[in-house]
Design a protein around this nucleic acid. Sequence first.
DNA 1: GAGGCGTTTTGAA
DNA 2: TTCAAAACGCCTC
Length: 167
Amino acid sequence: MHRIPIPTKDGEFTAWFSERGLARLEFPGNRPNRLSTPQAGKPALRSSVSLRRWQQQTANALRQALAGETPKSLPPLDLSAGTAFQQAVWKALVRIPQGQTRSYAQLAASVGKPLAVRAAGGACGANPIPVLVPCHRVVPKGGGLGGFSAGLEWKRRLIARENITLQ
DNA sequence: GAGGCGTTTTGAA
DNA sequence: TTCAAAACGCCTC
């Protein structure tokens, strides 16, 4: 795992890269703890060249996402940390167009489990790559914000940047 | 409108 | 293996 700081105008994010791509993204001010910090000792990266390219792509994508724009190119995402269900949910999240929202029920239905709404919420909470995997675009059906792993203030901010108005 | 119950998944004991 | 909890939704009263 390689830890790369990514400065933005919203603060310094921390990206973690595995040999397969971007594996984790932490918000500014998140002090690392042993639960959320990936363990060292993973296989070394194939080349520092791809790492540099991923870092650049991640920084660009992150800044565009924070500006409410659709990132033109994303680095490869390493979602292998999640279960099959979680990975399906995260991939469904990436497909939500910029400026739109989905309910937890719609999200659950899009992975073929329309009844697993609670589990879908849990998968959102376990999302290791917020912002680039836009879990902030998922809101409760009945209105409101739902929850957000990094705090509702971030969710509100990200939603506002995309000109999304909530009921 | 408020409260209770249902469905699915996850993680801890 | 069991059980409780969870970023929810629907039904009933």
